[in-house]
C-alpha cells in the first residue's frame, strides 16, 4: 500500500495543532512542555515528508538538528521546572504569578 505524502502532512499538521492547543489550554508546566515537544516532533515529520517529496536531504538534516536541540531544551526546561517546584511545591502555571506590579 502506498500512502500519499499529503496524508503525512495532514497528520503532522494535526499533531502540531494538538501541541499548540495543549500549550494554550493546559496549565501543568510538564504537560505544556510535552506539548511543545509534540510540536517539534510534528515538524520533524513534516520535514522528512517534504525531504522525500523534494528529493533532497536538507529536510532530514534539519530534523536531526531539531532532535538535538529538543534534547538540549529538555535539559534546561526540566531543570527550571524542578527548581521552581522546589521553591513553590507546585508545577502549575497559574501559581507562577509573582511578577505583576
Amino acid at each position: 500500500m502506498i500512502v500519499p505524502a499529503g496524508h503525512y502532512l495532514v497528520l503532522a499538521a494535526a499533531l502540531f495543532t494538538v501541541g499548540v492547543v495543549g500549550v494554550l489550554v493546559r496549565r501543568n508546566l510538564i504537560v505544556m512542555f510535552m506539548c511543545i515537544e509534540l510540536m517539534l516532533n510534528s515538524v520533524n515529520l513534516t520535514l522528512v515528508t517534504f525531504s522525500r517529496v523534494n528529493g533532497n536531504l536538507d529536510g532530514q538534516v534539519l530534523s536531526f538538528f531539531v532532535m538535538v536541540v529538543a534534547a538540549a531544551e529538555v535539559t534546561v526546561g526540566l531543570a527550571l521546572i524542578v527548581n521552581l517546584f522546589r521553591l513553590k511545591a507546585s508545577a502549575d502555571a497559574d501559581d507562577v504569578d509573582a511578577l505583576r506590579s
Partner: peptide, 28 residues
C-alpha cells in the same frame, strides 16, 4: 528570577516551534 526564566523558556520554546514549522513549510 525563576518565574522570569520559566516564562521565557515556555514562550521561547513555543515560538521556536512555530518558527520551525514556518521553516518546514518554506522548505516544502
Amino acid at each position: 528570577s525563576q518565574e522570569a526564566a520559566l516564562k521565557y523558556f515556555l514562550l521561547g520554546a513555543f515560538s521556536s516551534a512555530l518558527l520551525l514549522y514556518g521553516i518546514a513549510l518554506v522548505y516544502g
